[in-house]
Amino acid sequence: MINFIWMGLIIIGIVVGAINGNMKEINEATFEGAKIGVTICFGLISVLVFWLGLMKIAEESGLLALFAKLLRPVVRFLFPDVPKDSPALGYILSNISANLFGLGNAATPMGLKAMTELQKINPHPDRASSAMITFLALNTSGLTLIPTTIIAIRLNYESANAVEIVGTTLFATCCGTLVAILLDKWYRRKYRSSF
């Protein structure tokens, strides 16, 4: 659906520009936007490769396994209805770990796999289970320790202090995650029978 919305906006913009005689400006903006997009992508690639490399080193050294072990009680508290041996828990832990380090692009495939596994144990396949709702709430709030993607964009635009946003990002995402968890727990208690 979103593709149709974007396509509609682009077509409307081009038609209105043509009617008003602004095709030259539209062409310039199109090429400038493409140039900026490529520049941003290259900047993001370098930072993401760096952090993904560090994540791979952490995985090989056993640090991620230790981190997942530390998070396991929290995940069990948040997802009490997911069986202990479900592969969904591993994907959820991987997704949370990637989001903590600001690697949203790396977290997405793990999040999709987690949802697939949660759907397999969903007693009502025609609607989202409470575990799926909890996971979506956590993923949307996105607790982040190091916002690597934002830092990469700020570095790309030659920010004087690209990492100054770490504190405010941590505060904002902690608040968002806390509210998401509290609302999720409240809704689970209030509407437990309907999930």
Results as ranks from 00 to 15, higher is better:
residue 12 I to Y: 13
residue 8 G to T: 08
residue 20 N to L: 15
residue 46 S to D: 07
residue 43 G to S: 00
residue 21 G to I: 10
residue 7 M to I: 13
residue 25 E to A: 15
residue 48 L to C: 05
residue 55 M to I: 04
residue 7 M to W: 13
residue 50 F to M: 12
residue 43 G to W: 02
residue 42 F to L: 09
residue 26 I to E: 08
residue 11 I to E: 02
residue 11 I to S: 01
residue 10 I to T: 14
residue 26 I to L: 15
residue 11 I to P: 00
residue 6 W to E: 06
residue 40 I to P: 01
residue 53 G to R: 00
residue 42 F to T: 01
residue 33 G to V: 02
residue 28 E to L: 14
residue 56 K to H: 08
residue 38 V to Y: 07
residue 57 I to C: 02
residue 38 V to M: 07
residue 57 I to R: 03
residue 44 L to C: 00
residue 17 G to R: 12
residue 39 T to R: 14
residue 39 T to V: 03
residue 47 V to M: 08
residue 8 G to C: 05
residue 53 G to S: 04
residue 19 I to G: 07
residue 58 A to W: 06
residue 48 L to S: 03
residue 60 E to C: 03
residue 18 A to D: 08
residue 47 V to S: 08
residue 39 T to M: 09
residue 54 L to V: 04
residue 42 F to E: 05
residue 38 V to R: 03
residue 37 G to L: 08
residue 16 V to W: 10
residue 17 G to H: 11
residue 33 G to P: 02
residue 52 L to D: 06
residue 57 I to Q: 04
residue 36 I to S: 08
residue 7 M to P: 02
residue 56 K to F: 07
residue 54 L to G: 05
residue 44 L to F: 03
residue 51 W to R: 03
residue 8 G to V: 07
residue 30 T to Y: 15
residue 7 M to N: 12
residue 53 G to W: 01
residue 40 I to F: 04
residue 47 V to A: 10
residue 43 G to M: 00
residue 14 I to H: 04
residue 45 I to F: 10
residue 31 F to L: 13
residue 53 G to M: 02
residue 13 G to F: 14
residue 28 E to G: 05
residue 38 V to F: 11
residue 56 K to A: 10
residue 59 E to R: 09
residue 42 F to P: 00
residue 43 G to D: 00
residue 31 F to K: 11
residue 20 N to P: 04
residue 60 E to V: 11
residue 37 G to S: 12
residue 10 I to R: 04
residue 15 V to M: 06
residue 38 V to Q: 02
residue 49 V to K: 06
residue 13 G to N: 12
residue 14 I to G: 01
residue 59 E to P: 01
residue 59 E to Y: 03
residue 58 A to F: 09
residue 28 E to T: 14
residue 28 E to A: 14
residue 25 E to G: 06
residue 57 I to F: 04
residue 47 V to H: 00
residue 24 K to Y: 12
residue 20 N to R: 15
residue 45 I to N: 00
residue 60 E to G: 00
residue 52 L to M: 12
residue 41 C to H: 06
residue 57 I to G: 01
residue 20 N to E: 15
residue 60 E to K: 11
residue 18 A to V: 11
residue 27 N to F: 15
residue 18 A to Y: 15
residue 21 G to D: 10
residue 32 E to N: 13
residue 55 M to G: 01
residue 53 G to A: 00
residue 52 L to W: 04
residue 39 T to Q: 13
residue 34 A to K: 02
residue 41 C to R: 10
residue 6 W to R: 12
residue 34 A to I: 11
residue 11 I to W: 03
residue 7 M to Q: 10
residue 15 V to W: 10
residue 24 K to S: 13
